[in-house]
């Protein structure tokens, strides 16, 4: 689910933050920021402090972003996957869009039950000599304990909103959120345990080789002071560099109330 069209992404981002799109043509997008977004993105706290202290409303800036590389010399900022501006937007999303509670939108006149799902999006990093990431999106039915992976892909296909639709009601969870989270963690741990570890074995091999080299290096140098400290430090460096480990990092998560859908089968 990586971003395919940066321009659409930016358009959606600013629309979701209630910023008006002033100009939007040929890969050039000009948006009128709101005060909130100006404060978040434009890095001018003194301006806002000054304006507020003099009692005026202040004037949020316009921002022009260029996604079309052929037009990058136009007035505005050329934005691409490595540009600081996009990294700033990513960081802003990362900090603010962690939690949610959403309801499936249904047009009905019949009483309809919505079942609670705990959805967790998690980044797993495998770190040995090098590093690799994997993102897993997993959902847990908080009533019957059913689990589903690629949950975000599924959620993309149904309409969601922040309020519950008419004639709908929610079923109370039988599994508490905290123990639900623990179940998900356990499944992921199991998933990791069942993998092959070539990357970790290689890293351990290098780790041991370099430790042997280091010991040999110091074997004849008993004349220097603080020798043990130095060797200890270098041993630590080698260990830090090569000790294989796995990191869990939750991107975001939420409670989703969904209708009973037979296509959501047990994984």
């Amino acid at each position: 689910m990586a971003i395919e069209h940066l321009h659409d992404f930016l358009q959606n981002y600013f629309t979701a933050h209630n910023c008006e799109l002033v100009h939007n043509q040929d890969g050039i997008l000009t948006v009128q920021l709101t005060e909130k977004m100006d404060r978040a993105l434009m890095n001018r706290p003194f301006y806002w402090h000054y304006v507020k202290s003099t009692g005026f409303a202040g004037e949020p800036m316009k921002l022009t972003l260029i996604t079309n590389p052929d037009r990058r010399d136009d007035k505005g900022e050329w934005i691409h996957f490595g540009s600081p501006r996009l990294q700033q937007l990513f960081a802003h999303l990362h900090d603010n869009e962690k939690f949610t509670k959403l309801f499936q939108k249904i047009d009905t006149t019949k009483k309809t039950a919505l079942y609670p799902w705990l959805v967790i999006n998690i980044k797993i990093s495998y770190i040995g000599k090098q590093k690799r990431d994997e993102i897993i999106s997993i959902g847990l039915h908080l009533v019957n304990g059913m689990m589903k992976t690629e949950m975000m892909e599924y959620l993309k296909t149904i309409p969601l909103q922040m309020t519950i639709s008419d004639y709908c009601f929610t079923i109370s969870p039988l599994i508490k959120v905290k123990s639900g989270f623990k179940r998900i963690e356990a499944v992921l741990e199991n998933y990791i345990e069942n993998q092959t570890y070539e990357w970790a074995d290689e890293s351990l091999k290098t780790l041991n080789e370099e430790i042997d080299l280091l010991k040999h290096f110091y074997s004849d140098r008993m004349d220097e002071e603080n020798l043990d400290n130095k060797m200890e430090q270098e041993l630590n460096e080698i260990t830090n560099r090569y000790q294989p480990h796995v990191l869990f990092n939750v991107i975001n998560g939420g409670i989703f109330y969904l209708t009973d859908d037979p296509t959501l089968t047990i994984q």
Binding site: M1, H94, E97, T100, K101, E134, I135, L155, N252
Partner: peptide, 19 residues
């Protein structure tokens, strides 16, 4: 709580920047 759009965008951003 985040809206669905922004929640999904954060996920997309991570999926874009991961290695």
């Amino acid at each position: 709580f985040s809206s669905w759009e922004l929640f999904q965008m954060n996920y997309q951003a991570e999926a874009t920047s991961m290695t």
